[in-house]
Every structure is written in structure tokens, then in C-alpha cells.
Amino acid sequence: MIKVENLTKEFEGFKALDELNLHVRKGSIYGLVGVNGSGKTTVIKHIAGVYKQDRGRVIIDGEDIFDNIPIKRRLSYISDDLYFFGMYTLKGSAAYYQKLYPEWNSDRYAHMTEKFGLDENKRLSKFSKGMRKQAAFILAMSSMPDVLILDEPIDGLDPLVRRLVIKYIVEDVAEREMTVLVSSHNLKEMEGLCDSIGIINRGKMLIERDLDDLKSDVHKIQAVFPEGKEVVLEGLNVLFREKRGSVDMLIIRGNGDEIESRLRKNKPVVLDLLPLSLEEIFIYEIGGEKDEFKELLF
């Protein structure tokens, strides 16, 4: 559904995106993660058709997105820095959106405004920051998009509203196969919501995979092996090993069952094998070769 190929963008000599590739399947919820300044928002602005690329292509549903009005009518984008017309109320904004988006759904707008408990006759400039975010979400969802792009949407919302937002997103993915691309630093929340993950670093795509595959691929192990005997780790892809007292800390890539059966041959006194959480994968992959980051994992 969304395909980004070799996307490159420079700002005054600074290479913000460097041959970046990204793929989002139809009906998927894709999580884009990366440290501050890694290029998340820049990618998102290309996919939303706000920026024009230097090189490469951004394709949605088989067509280039930039200046493509028919595709943009089927796409909603909530940016990190929201923009509303100065004097507009939520009601006024809804009337404006209705003219732009042919699939606009007034019933849904009314229903959501009530659910979120927003006063549609109050000026948006008088709303709190969180309420403005909710207003943007109502407007985006009421335009019934095929593609929804969210730049840090849930950061800054209270837990109740967050659940409501996630519920609406899941519903539309289930009912109409809406495709979602979302960036966030809240990796715990992303873990429950997304099925695919892209980790970007310095303007490049570092890893792009199914979340479950990503998680079942790397394991962290705490083990105590019998003293005085050489531990056999043959056939295991050991990424990191550190001894703390008698406890062995290992990070091993591969199938969990196989790792376990191989380690068992050493007759460990204690053997705990845990898949990494998304947060740990993030620290591990971004931290790269630096051991001080890997130490954060234990």
C-alpha cells in the first residue's frame, strides 16, 4: 500500500534521509521508531505528500503521492505540530474538511465529538493541547481515510483518551482495512498496536520486520553454569556475553527452543530465556556495537 524507495532528502547540506526504503501492507498497522533526529518526521512528511524528495520515490497504492490530489483525498495525516485556522471552531473545521474529503462521514463526526466530550462551538485556539490533538483525530477519522498517518499521536494524551483513540484505529483497520503508519516513542504501547515495525537511524532503515518475528529472533538469557567447566556455545549466534559473578548474561540470536536445548547440554543450574521486548530491541539495535548500551539490557 505504501512503498518508499531509495528516498533521499537533504536540508542545506544535511542528509536527513539517505536511500531509505519502507513498505507498509494494506490493512497493516506499521510502527516507525527511531531516536530523536533520526528522520521519522521527515519520512512521514514525504509520505503525506508535504515534502518533495530529492531522489527516490514515495508510492501509495501504485501512484506517486506528491501533488496527487485523488490519493491525498484518501489519506489523513496528523502532524506532531498541529495547525488549525485561527478563529475556527471544531464545527467550522468539520465543515471545511467535509468540502475537502469526499468520504466525509457526518454521523461519525457527531458520534466521536460526543464520545470525546468536546464542545464543537468553542474556538479551537481555546482548547488545551491534548484537546486539540483529540480534535485533529476526530477530523482525521471522520474523513474515513484509507491511509492514516500519525506522528506521535498518543504522546500527551491521558490514558482514557488514549484507549479510545486506539479503539477507533483498531476498529477501522478491522472493518475497512485501513492502513496505518504511526510513529511514537512509547514502545510499550506500539507493541500492542502494531504488527510491523521499522527502526530508522540516521536517515536509513535499520530493520523492517513483522513485530512477532523481530521479537522471537533475539533472546536474552540469564544462566548459571556449573563451575570449573568450559561452557559450550557451539552453533549459537552469541551477540553479547558478560559474566556478573557466577551469572552469565547472554544475548543470542536464533530460535528460542533450539537455543534452550543447546544451552541445556551445559547442565545449567539456572537458565532463564526471555524474548526481548521492543524497547530492548530498540536499545540493542540502535546502541549497535557499543557495549555500554547493551549493558542497559540487564
Binding site: 490493512g27 497493516s28 498497522i29 484507549r163 486506539i166 479503539k167 483498531v170 476498529e171 483497520v173 478491522a174 472493518e175 500492542g192 498496536l193 502494531c194 504488527d195 512477532d212
Partner: peptide
């Protein structure tokens, strides 16, 4: 159904499908 389950648990429908 996958849809109903996804909505009830607020979990990604693709995960339920899997």
C-alpha cells in the same frame, strides 16, 4: 470473528488473525 475480537481486546486485527 477476528474483527469483533480485535475490537473487544483493542488489539491489532492482524495479530488476532495470526
Amino acid at each position: 470473528s477476528v474483527r469483533d475480537m480485535a475490537k473487544e481486546l483493542t488489539i491489532n486485527p492482524n495479530t488476532i488473525q495470526k
